[in-house]
């Protein structure tokens, strides 16, 4: 079937097998490989992307299900000249990554959180990261980074 998805602001249209998962579509067809396949069982969150602005686990969504929708991946966050967006900068500033495998999913989950709740408490940040596992167990700095991104967005306002 044909699926047309706006990925990071650009319209993409491809013929895919009906059973194609969104994460494979993004990585293998569209060619955006920041989104990782981790557990493949909608547990670990490494494959988190935004569909119409909301976080989803792209290993458990068919490409066909988001036909006509807008998808944002980690590649879509940085500006045109490569300048990092505030969440990416905060992750860098706070050393919120060790091996980096979970990072694209963490950043997208955090981006979705701040869109829904611009001023989360630390407890709310931790609850919102329930579906994102960091096997380096670097949660402390990840939480700090997200709190800091929320504060800097407030400062910029």
């Amino acid at each position: 079937m044909n699926v047309t998805i706006t990925v990071n602001g650009e319209k993409t249209s491809h013929e895919v097998e009906d059973r194609t998962l969104l994460v494979h579509h993004l990585r293998d067809v569209v060619g955006l490989t920041a989104t990782n396949v981790g557990c493949d069982t909608s547990t670990c969150g490494a494959c988190t992307v935004l569909v119409n602005g909301e976080s989803v686990k792209s290993c458990t969504v068919l490409a066909a299900q988001v036909d006509g929708d807008e998808v944002q991946t980690l590649e879509g966050l940085a500006g045109e000249n490569g300048e990092l967006d505030p969440m990416q900068s905060a992750f860098r500033e706070h050393h919120a990554l060790q091996c980096g495998f979970c990072t694209p999913g963490m950043v997208m989950a955090a981006t979705s959180l701040l869109r829904e709740n611009p001023h989360p408490t630390e407890e709310e940040v931790r609850a919102a990261l329930k579906g994102n596992l960091c096997r380096c167990t670097g949660y402390h700095n990840i939480v700090q980074a997200i709190m800091s991104a929320a504060e800097s967005a407030e400062g910029a306002r």
Partner: peptide, 9 residues
């Protein structure tokens, strides 16, 4: 239920 991503779907 689940996590925010699961609850979005």
């Amino acid at each position: 239920v689940g996590d925010p991503q699961v609850r979005h779907r």
